[in-house]
Amino acid sequence: MNRTLLFLLALAASLLSANAQTQAQTQAQTQSAPPLREAWKNASLFLFNDAFSQFQKEKTTNPREASLGEALSLLGIQPKTQKNLARSLSILTALAAENPSDEIGLAARFHLARIDELHRTEPNLPAARKQYLSLLEDAPASPFSQIAASRIALIDLHLSAPDPASLDETEARLRPLENFLRTPEGKREFHTMVGLVLNTRLGNPTTVLRHLLIASKESFSQKKIESDVLFTIAEIADTQGDTALAKQYYSRFVADFPQDIRTFLIKKRLEDFSAKK
C-alpha cells in the first residue's frame, strides 16, 4: 500500500517537474523575443485571445503599437460583439487623432475604414470610401494607402453594379487614383481589381483589357489570380480579333501553368491559330 502511494507520489512529482520544465522553456522562449513580436505572431495565426492579453501587458512599454494590436485583436476575438467593436473603434479613433501620419496612425485610419466597410453588421460603404481616399491623398507611399486604392475601386464598382450602364463612368472616375499608385503590389492589386470586377459585371472588354494588361506586367503572389488574369486577357483579345495579343498571352499561360485545367483548351486554340496561318 505504502509502495503504491510512493509510486503515485513519484509519478505526480515527475509530472509536475516536467510541467514546470515546459513552462520554464516557454517563458525563456518568450523572453528572448522582442515583446510585441510574439503578440503579432499570435494575431497572424488568428490566436486573438492570446494576442490581446499580450498586447495589454505591453501597453506601458510601447503604448501606441500595443494599443493598435489590442484594437485589432478585439476585431478578431470571438464571439464577435458590438461591445468589442465599439471598444476597438474608440481605440483606433484615439490612435488616429493622436498622430494621423505615423505608421500606427495610418494603420489605425485604414482599419477604421475597414470597420465601416466590413466589420459592422450593416456596412457603411460611403464612409469607408471617404476614409480610404483621405488616407491615399495624405500618405500615398504607405502600404495601407496602396491597399486603399484597390478598396475604393471595389466599393465604387460594387455600388455601380446594379446599373451596368454606369460602369464605364465609374471606371473613368477611378482613373485619377492611378496617380497615387507607388508600389508594384499597389499597381497590381488596383488594376487586377478593376479589370476582374469589371469583367465579372460584363463591363466594357476594352477597358477590362487595359487594366489587366497593366496588372500582368507585375509579379503575382497568388498563382490562381495570375492565371485568371492571363486567361482573361487572351480570351478578350481572341474575341476582339487581336490574334497576336491572344497568342502572346495564351502562350504565356501554357508556359507558366502547364498543369492548369484550361491548358489543353488553350493548346487547342493555339493549334487553331497555327492552322489558320
Partner: peptide, 12 residues
C-alpha cells in the same frame, strides 16, 4: 444567440 458555423468564429 449566435451566428456560428461550428468553428472559432461566431457573432452575436
Amino acid at each position: 444567440f449566435f451566428s456560428w458555423s461550428g468553428g472559432d468564429t461566431k457573432e452575436f
